[in-house]
Design a binder for these strands. Structure first.
Length: 262
DNA sequence: ATGGTGGACAATCCA
């Protein structure tokens, strides 16, 4: 089984990149973030016409998640469902599907703006709410096959950024966000990217606003694939795919995917 | 360099 994640920064503007990637890599699951399309405007037929299945939940201009699958998923729900989803960030940051016995949680974690901003507080709380969601939905990580993917807007260790000392503290790389993220991984998630790729300098995101960021190695690893132990022990490979960066209209994120003996 | 670029969407907001 192949599971992939991609912050597409508008599903409509990068539709061809996504379709080409699906065709070339044949994943079982592709999780998208920042689709930036209300449900009526989501290009559903463009995926289903080529045989893919897709579930999605979006809003105007911002956020939005989708999950594309090879076969139809058995369950799909959206949002944290804790009664606290505001209109602004309603249910467009989390998709939860079940596919062949695997529970996939696809999240676009709030970015947080800056350390003093109210949105950063919202981000820290959001991680806490996600942990509650997991505890509520799964008895334990040992007994559940859960895969958590997405743009998690956290670079959890020094080697997940190009210059930790220079960047620290940042909303995606500071103690508070690392602790909040650890609160979720404490559920029982293993960072299978690091199981397969332990070396530094491997990134998934480069800021558009930094000139020549990719060539200069000024990246961040904020797109993640984490799994519960029973899934982690069956992972065989994790890879960053740079194809989306080489096109005429490059994305700021890469595709990341993992293969499992499942 | 308190900027920069890209996307949505129509004046700015977000990353």
């Amino acid at each position: 089984m192949r599971i992939a994640t991609f912050n597409c920064n508008s599903v409509r503007s990068r539709l061809q990149i996504i379709l080409d990637w699906l065709d070339a890599n044949s994943p079982d699951i592709l999780a998208l973030q920042e689709t930036k399309a209300v449900d009526d405007d989501f290009p559903e037929s463009e995926f289903t016409d080529t045989g893919w299945h897709v579930v999605y939940r979006g809003q105007k201009s911002y956020n939005g998640v989708a999950v594309i699958t090879k076969e139809k998923c058995t369950k799909a729900s959206f949002g944290l469902q804790d009664g606290l989803d505001s209109d602004e960030d309603s249910s467009t940051r989390l998709a939860h599907i079940e596919y062949k016995g695997i529970h996939l949680i696809n999240t676009y974690v709030p970015q947080g703006r800056d350390l003093e901003h109210e949105k950063f507080k919202f981000k820290l709380e959001w991680f806490g709410r996600l942990r509650k969601y997991l505890d509520k939905n799964f008895k334990s990580s040992a007994k559940s096959k859960v895969v958590w993917v997405g743009d998690l807007n956290v670079a959890p260790t020094p080697i997940d950024v190009h210059d930790s000392k220079k960047i620290w503290p940042h909303v995606c790389h500071c103690q508070a966000v690392i602790d909040a993220f650890a609160g979720v991984t404490g559920f029982g998630f293993i960072d299978i990217f690091r199981k397969h790729i332990p070396e530094e300098g491997k990134f998934t995101f480069w800021d558009y606003r930094v000139r020549g960021a990719l060539e200069r190695g000024l990246g961040w690893r904020i797109d993640h694939i984490l799994t519960t132990p029973s899934v982690a022990e069956r992972s065989t490979k994790v890879e960053i795919d740079f194809e989306a960066r080489k096109l005429e209209k490059p994305s700021d994120h890469t595709f990341v995917f993992a293969d499992f003996d499942l």
